[in-house]
Structure formats: structure tokens, C-alpha cells
Amino acid sequence: MEPIRLAVNGRTDIGQVREENEDSIRWYSDQEQPFAYVIVADGMGGYSGGATASQIAADTLQHYLNGLLGDIFLSCSPQQQQLMLRAALIESINSANQRILDTKDTRPQFSQMGTTLVVAAVWQDFLIVAHIGDSRAYLWNNYGLQRLTRDHSVVQEMIDSGQLTPEQAQESQVRNHITRALGVSKQVEPAINSWTLTEDALLLLCSDGLTEYLDDHTIERVLATHRPALESVYLFIEDANRLGGRDNISAGILEFSSRSEAIMTPAEDAITLKPKKDDVTVRKS
């Protein structure tokens, strides 16, 4: 296998309107092993509540992922390592959900808080993405831009059923209504997918404060042309603020480099957990 190089960068911004930044972002690239991740959480729930929820989620996942690369993990086979990474994500998401619920029980002023979450982790050439809500992950390579997540939102369901076009969804009065979030119920259902990366690629993770203003074509153009690629996060946030900045804005970039030339292919064990019929609907403030 050709040597793999991973680099990350991230930024969060309060925007032009909000009085508080309810987004949280974490990013990390190991100096010795080909391991990196980006975490973005977009909180909701009134003054300080959203910021608390997103921070709990981001800190919890960061703690689990930072503790992954121990002797046992490094001694396992690649397939076992992939399963361990998936298990760590599932366990950390459940833990974050419970921590938010516990905080709501002890602090009544945070009773309405919750958060979206999107996380992407790369180990060697294995990419895994988990998300809840409408924070997104994208992948760009020489074949163009691919959205790796499907929003858990009312407008996405309306697009899927043919009631709205993607363009109409941008103007919808319910575009901020999400159908899944952390900290709402005991059971949490992340969508989880995995891929094998077989050529140079850029991963973008972002909150909806970015995608409210920048469509997929604009995102693709920036990722394809802006170099150094990791500095795209500053341009994305600058553009969203220039166009209105009504929400907090977060963007994280993970750069995957190898000398192998092929397309990104789905991992054999890639899965998406199906939503249940009793999904709740939550309106983000």
C-alpha cells in the first residue's frame, strides 16, 4: 500500500446575527498513524442550551476516538480495526445522547436542548461517516462532489416524496425542522456508512449555517480550485457571512492523499440504519 497522508483543519464562526455560537467542532490527525477525524455538532434549545448540547456531543466523540489507537487496536487485523472503529462511533454517540439527557434532567433551563452531529473518521484507506440531523459530509475527488449524508429533515422527506424540489427546499419555511437529533429521546439512530478510499480526496463536514447559502455546485467549485485545500474552511465561512450569516457556521476539511489512482468504492460492510416511523420532529432555533 502506498503511504497515506492525512491532514485536517476546521473553523467555527458565530455568523452575523446570532448572539451565541451553538456549533461545536473538533478535528484531529495523528502524527504517527494514518488516522484522522472531524466532528461537527449544531446545537439547539435556547440560550446556552444548544451550545451545551453540541459541546457534550463533540467532547464525548473526541474522547472515544482519541482513545481508540491503543495496543489492542493496532494489533488487530484491518477488518477487526474497521469493526472497532464502527463500534466506537456507535458507543460514543449513545454515550453523548445519554449525557445530554442526563444534563437536561439536572438543569431544567436546558430542557429543550439537543444537537445535530456529523463525524467522519479515516483509518488507513477506510472512511466511516455517522450523522444525525442536517449537518452534512461531502467528498470531493477528481470525479466531482458526492454528498455522503442525507439530511434527517422535513424538507428532505418532502424532496424524497416529490413534494419539493431541492431549489424550493432552500426557501421553505420548514427548512430548519429536523426529524432526528441527539438529546431528544433514549433511542438514537445515526445513519452510518463506510467506504474504501482509493484516490486523493477532500472531505468537508459542515453545519447548515454553511449549506443555507452555498449550494453543492458552489461547494464543488471551491474544493476543486482553492489551494491549499485546508484553507477552504476560511473561504466557506467568509462567503456564508457575506451572504447573510443568519446562523452559526462551521466547516472542517480532511485531506486524504495517496498515490493510488482509482475511484472511491463502497466498503462491503457499508450500512445505513433505517429510520423508524416514530421519528420525532424538532425545530432548530
Rank of each mutant, 00 (worst) to 15 (best):
L101W: 03
A267P: 02
W27D: 05
G70H: 02
T149Y: 01
V233I: 14
D13T: 12
I72T: 07
I4Q: 00
A96E: 13
P78G: 06
L139S: 00
Q170D: 08
L139W: 00
K284M: 14
D30W: 01
S285D: 13
S24P: 11
S172V: 03
V222Q: 03
A224S: 05
Y37Q: 11
F236P: 12
Y213G: 03
H217I: 07
E2A: 09
G43M: 12
D216N: 15
E238N: 10
N97Y: 09
I93V: 13
S258R: 13
H152C: 02
S77K: 12
G162Q: 09
Q55L: 11
V155C: 06
S111E: 11
A87L: 05
N142F: 10
S207E: 10
H63R: 10
V118E: 03
P275S: 06
R11D: 09
R283A: 03
K104V: 03
H177Y: 05
T179G: 02
E268R: 14
R86T: 13
H217C: 13
N248I: 12
E19P: 00
S24W: 10
I253V: 13
T218H: 11
R246K: 15
S258A: 08
I14R: 15
S153N: 11
T106A: 15
A240N: 05
E22D: 14
T116K: 05
V40M: 10
H177N: 03
V282G: 01
L145N: 03
D71G: 00
I4A: 04
L254N: 04
V282T: 08
T165M: 11
A7Q: 07
D216I: 04
A57E: 09
T272N: 00
Q112S: 13
P166G: 05
I93W: 06
F110M: 07
Q31D: 11
S161E: 12
L148D: 02
P108Y: 04
A7K: 13
V154Q: 05
S161F: 05
A224F: 00
D13R: 08
Y234Q: 10
F35T: 02
F256Y: 13
Q62N: 15
T179Y: 03
L164I: 10
R147K: 15
G49M: 09
A191E: 00
L230P: 01
P228H: 02
T165A: 07
D23I: 06
D160Y: 04
G244T: 08
G209F: 05
T281R: 07
L243K: 13
S75Y: 04
F110R: 04
D269F: 13
W195V: 01
R107D: 07
T149L: 01
Y213H: 12
E231W: 04
R86S: 14
I25V: 15
D239K: 13
R11Y: 07
